Amino acid sequence: MKKRKIPLRKDIVTGEMFPKRELVRVVKNKQDEVSLDPTGKKPGRGAYIELDVKIAKRAKEERTFDKAFKIKIDDDFYDELIAYVDHQQARKELFKNE
């Protein structure tokens, strides 16, 4: 049986490559609205970040998505990102044995 290729994406904060499933996509649409894209299917320019709270906090400190999308992004978005990543990380820990 043929082995399936695992899609890799680059974490915008660390520059490391990870399987797409271990990252969360952040997307900017044509109206310059930035949002989380858990499905990975929203239209617009996307950037990926690892599901790690430390990395999300580092993105907030360095204003990583401001630089990537070349627009000013509110702290509310970064707080939402940190909360989402924290939740997903907790879920991953909880369900890792299944």
Rank of each mutant, 00 (worst) to 15 (best):
E62D: 06
F77T: 12
P19W: 06
V85H: 06
E98A: 08
R21N: 09
D11E: 00
D37G: 06
D11Y: 02
V26D: 02
K42T: 04
A90R: 12
D11G: 04
I49N: 03
R58S: 14
R4M: 14
N29H: 09
L51A: 03
M1S: 13
E22N: 11
N29K: 11
D86T: 15
K96C: 02
R25Q: 07
L94G: 00
I73T: 06
K72R: 15
E22L: 11
T64I: 09
D66I: 03
D32M: 09
F18D: 01
I73H: 06
D66F: 03
L23Y: 00
K60G: 08
K54H: 11
D32Y: 09
K30Q: 10
E80D: 14
D52N: 15
R45P: 00
V27C: 09
Q88Y: 12
S35Q: 12
K3Q: 13
K30M: 05
D74A: 13
D86K: 15
I82P: 06
R4S: 14
E50Y: 13
I82T: 10
G44Q: 07
L8V: 05
A47Y: 04
D75H: 09
L51M: 10
F95H: 03
R25Y: 01
H87T: 11
Y84P: 03
K30T: 08
R4E: 15
K92A: 14
P38D: 15
V85A: 13
D32S: 12
K92I: 05
N29R: 11
K28F: 01
A59S: 14
A56V: 08
I82G: 11
L51D: 01
V53N: 07
P7W: 08
K2D: 10
K41L: 13
L51C: 07
L8F: 10
I73E: 02
Y48G: 08
I55C: 07
L81Y: 00
K3H: 07
K5D: 12
Y84D: 14
K57Y: 00
E50T: 14
E61F: 00
R21G: 06
I73V: 06
Y78H: 14
E22G: 03
